[in-house]
Nucleic acid binder design. Structure first.
Lengths: 193, 193
DNA sequence: GTCTATAAGCGGATAGAC
DNA sequence: GTCTATCCGCTTATAGAC
């Protein structure tokens, strides 16, 4: 183990952004708080990113990459078609229990709500998250639902989004498991034809 | 038909708030825009409500009352237990097609995200919406799922929240119908025991 | 060259005075 | 109803430290 290294300012900023922004709220978090958390000066932030929005966008892109990787792992580890489809819920639970401080609900949907007039750079990340979900769920639905794969994929996307929104709501207690149940039942119904 | 009456300033403010706030965003809408929309002066707003937050809270309370009424009607009009449980989705579709300008997704969940440090007055309305949903869905689940009514109610709440979140996401195309399907399948599964 | 500290500009939003 | 004070948040300028 080498001595503890201090990360460069840019990385400290991204870490602080990921830690604070999606937990306490993007608009609710002033730049000064990020600067304090990251122990970085304002000049450095604007030298590296140019704006708060650009820092938000980069933090979201990193989060999407991490989420995709976690989801990948859970798909690979799954044993059959049903488990592969439901892996999105296990991945979500794992992601939220992992090294990130869990967002209050969903960083991408929160950004969409909090920043309705956000620069394209930001709305593109939500679009990319949604596209990733829609495409993968469709692929994973095919072996289970055949010609009705699109219907099943839509249903799982709604169940997944519902788990996230229910986290924000605070009810039911364990929305990710509830969403998973919902998705499993839908998949079984389509399998029976 | 009598001559068109000009509503009092307080009502014009509440109408403008309902029209603009939940469509364009609560924080994204400056007070000045509400004043222009309502054709009211700032002094009047602060005389009646005291703050923007208080106006938001009142607009949310009105919205919850209207939503409850629409849901009521759809439950009463429903023909059997299954239709009564699924009425929440038909009511949602009707509410969004009704006299309100539809919110971008959900006024209550949006308020929760946009105003994480909101005064109690505001978070209470989200709590009331969630409590209304949870209690009613549990009652409506009993005839269909018996001892497992709580599980079914949780599932419908997640499907409902997912329909709303999917509106924000922009995918799938018709999330309310997808949520309804999800809920129906869940209910059928519980009915078969 | 990278980063810090400080300060100040500036627009926008809330609130209250007149 | 108009006008204004005040505050707050984002951004930039300046000057200097490691």
């Amino acid at each position: 183990m080498t001595t503890a290294q201090r990360l460069p300012a840019r990385d400290r900023l991204l870490q602080a952004a990921d830690r604070v922004l999606f937990d306490r709220g993007i608009r609710a978090t002033p730049v000064d708080e990020l600067l304090r958390e990251a122990e970085v000066s304002a000049a450095t932030l604007y030298a590296h990113f140019g704006s708060k929005d650009a820092l938000v966008a980069e933090a979201l892109r990193n989060r999407l990459a991490d989420w995709r990787a976690v989801w990948d792992q859970h798909i690979v580890a799954a044993g059959d078609d049903m488990a592969r489809l439901l892996a999105v819920f296990d991945a979500l639970a794992a992601y939220r229990g992992g090294r990130h401080r869990p967002a209050r609900w969903c960083a991408f949907l929160a950004a969409a709500t909090e920043l309705p007039d956000a620069p394209d750079e930001i709305s593109e990340v939500l679009g990319a998250d949604t596209a990733l979900l829609a495409e993968r769920l469709l692929q994973l639905s095919r072996p289970l639902a055949g010609a009705r794969a699109q219907d099943l994929a839509d249903e799982v996307l709604v169940a997944y989004s519902g788990a996230l929104a229910a986290l924000l709501r605070g009810s039911p207690r364990d929305p990710i498991q509830v969403g998973r149940r919902l998705a499993r039942t839908a998949a079984e119904a389509h399998s029976r034809g």
